[in-house]
Structures are given as C-alpha cells and as structure tokens.
C-alpha cells in the first residue's frame, strides 16, 4: 500500500484573523470514507474550505499533503487538477453558462486534454440517470433557478463527471427531503463503490450515511478533533447527539 492520499498534520486555520481550527491531524487513504461530524459552528466547513484552498480561509499553522505533495500553498485549481473536489453548501449561479458546458470546460481545463465528445455525452447521460436528473438540465444555466435539491444533485453530477480521487462533501444533505437525500446518496455510492473514490463527508446529521460504508468518524468540537472512531461512532451520535463531546 502506498502512502496516504490526504495527510493533514497539525493544521490550524481560520478566517479574517479568527482562528477556527486548532492543531488538526487527519489521514485519509485511497478509497476510504471519513465522516466529519460536529455541532454547528464547530469548524467543519472551515476544514473543508481550507483543504480545498478557499482563499478566504488562512492557514496559520501546519501542513496539508495530497498524494505525498505539500499543497498547503497551492491554489484551488491546482488541487482540483490533482484530484480533489468539494461539493459546495451553496453552489454559485452562472447565467449564460450551461451545466453541460461548465462540466465540459472543467474537464478540459483540469485535465489539459481535449474532450472526447461522444464518450463525454454517454458518461453524462449515465450519471444523470443515477441522479434521476431530467435531460433538460444540461441545457439549463448552471444553478440558475435550480431548487436546493437540484443544486445538490448538480454538485454530485460534477463529482461523478470530474471523477476525483478525494471528494469533500460539505453538508450535501442539508435542506433536502427524504427522497432527494436518497437520490443524492445513490450518486455518492456510485462514486464510492464503483469508482473507489475517497470521501470526506462533512455533515451534522447522519441520513446521508445510511447507504455508505464508513471507515472512520471524526467528531469536531470547537475547532479540535474531540474523538475519532469507526462507523459505530455515527450510531452513537445518532442516539445521543454531541452532548458527550461538548462537555468540558
């Protein structure tokens, strides 16, 4: 077995002068699924954004390695090209740019290779089928006029099409109804089981985890990892909430 896919060591980070994450250590190997849970305001999204290289967040200490390379200073586009992906809590709207054209451009630019249109179309159709998306979506402007659920589906569609090595899913299940969670989960399952992709699932509920195999669970409280365990930790939180971890 080669080295870890993602290695975070002693990472501290924050936004505009306020440090929100303190001394985080985290190792994700190829194909593993890690769950990051924690109460609101614990710093979960900060971790996701810092890993992906959001310039609004600043690393104040520690390093991030991806595939053995130090990516701490790297721009988000370079990280994406190396095989990282993040699904956004609030995906952005771009009038005038269709969903299909966006994905096509993203693949072309991040791989630096011209696209095989026929193959691309076939993959796109297959992925949309899994996500139960109507064919008309590809023509629609990216996220413009999409409902909350449709936006999340469009994010997972991009995940399937860009086929990264590690996907960070930031609250992908928030604000979705039961059916939508099931559909989105099917897409994530496809990525996890068929493609063998690694996942860091950031969530404060557990619905999305029902159909996924979970390797490790981390509980983040006040910017620190309070506990790490296996899948059983998810069940425990399901029953008892975060109370046990937040007690001083």
């Amino acid at each position: 077995m080669s080295g870890p896919l993602l290695q975070v060591s002693d990472l501290s980070a924050g936004i505009e002068g306020a440090e929100l994450l303190h001394h985080i250590d985290l190792t994700i190997r190829e194909g593993e699924t890690h769950v990051l849970m924690g109460p609101n305001g614990a710093g979960k999204s900060t971790l996701g954004n810092t890993l992906m290289g959001n310039p609004a967040y600043h690393v104040t200490g520690g390093r991030i390695f991806f595939g053995g390379e130090d990516i701490t200073e790297l721009g988000a586009d370079k990280r994406a090209a190396m095989g990282m992906f993040m699904s956004f809590q609030n995906p952005l709207e771009i009038p005038g740019l269709s969903l299909e054209s966006f994905i096509r451009n993203a693949i072309r630019i991040s791989t630096g290779k011209p696209l095989k249109i026929f193959q691309f179309k076939k993959q796109l159709e297959a992925a949309m089928e899994i996500l139960q998306m109507d064919a008309s979506y590809v023509e629609r402007d990216l996220n413009v006029g999409f409902s909350g659920g449709e936006k999340k589906k469009a994010e997972i569609l991009q995940l399937l099409m860009l086929d990264p090595k590690l996907a960070i899913l930031d609250e992908t299940d928030s604000g979705l109804d039961v059916d939508a969670v099931r559909t989105v989960s099917r897409g994530i399952e496809e990525y996890q089981k068929e493609r063998g992709g690694a996942l860091l699932v950031i969530t404060h509920s557990t619905r999305i985890l029902d159909s996924l195999h979970v390797d490790r669970t981390h509980v983040l409280v006040k910017g620190r990892i309070a506990e790490t365990g296996g899948a059983e930790l998810v069940d425990e939180i399901n029953r008892g909430g975060f109370e046990r971890f937040t007690e001083e």
Partner: peptide, 11 residues
Amino acid sequence: MLFYMASRGID
C-alpha cells in the same frame, strides 16, 4: 466565484 471555478480545476 473564482474559488468555485477553481475547485473544479478552472484557473
């Protein structure tokens, strides 16, 4: 917007 694009590999 730049970050969203960048997270998809677009510089």
